[in-house]
């Protein structure tokens, strides 16, 4: 069970990392091209700002998934450090459960919100807005897979042995 979620979470993470590179690079390129076009070619691009913003939103949530997988989202460990090993283990189980609750809301309410705005389009590109918002439930699914893995690991005390 743990092995399955570990493999799944690592596999998905590799693909999300690749997406991060593609989206970050594309976003940078778009802003550079926009500057070049405005100052050098004296012509403004109509689509560039909106597309770059879309990429930023996607980047944020995809990056958050990779950061979560790596365990680099900062916390405050002043109290935590003073817990007993057993206390720390239970605190981690609690944190993972609370996190899963948040990710679950991202999935379920993310889908309802994407449906809620299914007819709305973006002003400059006329792209459906559900594509933009769709990243939230998508990231929610990825985060949940990592979260279940961490929860199972915490329940088996794997974090304590590291």
């Amino acid at each position: 069970m743990i092995r399955f979620f570990q493999t799944l979470s690592d596999g998905i993470n590799r693909r999300v990392e690749a997406l991060l590179f593609v989206m970050g690079g594309t976003m940078t390129l778009i802003v550079v091209v926009q500057v070049f076009s405005r100052y050098v070619l004296n012509h403004s691009l109509f689509w560039s700002e909106e597309l770059a913003r879309f990429l930023l939103v996607w980047l944020t949530f995809m990056g958050a998934c990779v950061g979560y997988h790596k365990g680099v989202h900062p916390g405050v460990d002043v109290c935590f450090k003073r817990f007993s090993p057993r206390g720390q283990q239970w605190a981690m189980v609690g944190i993972h459960l609370a996190s899963l609750l948040l990710f679950g809301v991202m999935v379920i309410k993310g889908i309802s919100f994407a449906w809620f705005i299914r007819l709305q389009i973006s002003p400059a590109l006329s792209l459906p807005k559900w594509i933009l918002m769709g990243i939230v439930p998508l990231a929610g699914v990825v985060l949940m897979i990592h979260g279940v893995r961490f929860l199972l690991e915490a329940l088996h005390g794997q974090d304590l042995m590291d």
Binding site: R38, S44, E49
Partner: peptide, 26 residues
């Protein structure tokens, strides 16, 4: 003329039709 317009397809089209160079800008 380079005219700043809101990010809206209508405003862009208006100024394009009038012969300006509409520029969306936050």
């Amino acid at each position: 003329l380079k005219i700043r317009v809101m990010a809206s397809a209508l405003h862009k089209t208006i100024w394009q039709t009038l012969g300006a160079n509409p520029t969306p800008m936050p």
